[in-house]
Computed example of a mutant assay.
Amino acid sequence: MTDPSGEPPTDAPHSRAAARRAAENASAFHDHVRAARSEFEHQIDRARADFEQVNDRINERTGRNLLMAIAIGLVVGGGVLAMLLFLPWGFMIFAIAVCLLGVFEFARALQTSGRRIDIAPQLGAGAVIMLAASFLDGWTLWVLVFAGVAFILIWRLLAQMVASDGRRADDVLSDVLVSGFVPIYVPFLASLALVVLSREQGQLWVLGMIIAVVAVDTGAYASGLAFGSHPMAPRISPKKTWEGFAGGALAALLVGILYGMFVLHLPWWAGAISGLVFLGCATVGDLGESMIKRDLGIKDMSSWLPGHGGVLDRLDSLLPSAAGALALYLLFFPLTVS
Rank of each mutant, 00 (worst) to 15 (best):
S274I: 10
E24P: 01
P13Q: 08
M291H: 02
T10Q: 11
L276H: 14
I257Y: 01
A19H: 14
G260W: 02
V196W: 06
G148M: 15
A226K: 07
H30N: 15
Q203W: 13
R37D: 02
P121Y: 12
K293M: 08
P231A: 11
M261R: 12
I58H: 00
I257V: 15
S321V: 06
G280V: 07
I236E: 10
F262P: 03
Y329A: 02
I210A: 10
L66G: 03
G247D: 13
F135W: 15
S223L: 06
G202D: 08
S237L: 09
F245D: 01
I58Q: 00
I292R: 00
G6R: 09
N55S: 14
F104H: 14
N25Y: 00
D165C: 00
P121N: 08
L123V: 15
H230A: 06
G271S: 12
T218E: 10
D300Y: 00
H30L: 15
E105H: 08
F245R: 01
A120T: 15
L157T: 13
S317T: 03
F332L: 07
F151H: 12
M301R: 01
M261C: 10
H42Q: 14
L66V: 12
D31Q: 15
V284R: 01
D50V: 04
A22P: 12
M291P: 01
S223A: 12
I257W: 02
F146M: 14
D50S: 14
T2I: 13
G208R: 05
P183C: 07
D3L: 09
G297H: 04
L84C: 05
F332K: 02
A19M: 10
G6V: 13
D3H: 03
I93C: 03
P183W: 03
L319M: 01
D171K: 13
N59K: 14
E39F: 13
T10W: 01
V182M: 07
A125P: 09
Q203V: 05
A190I: 03
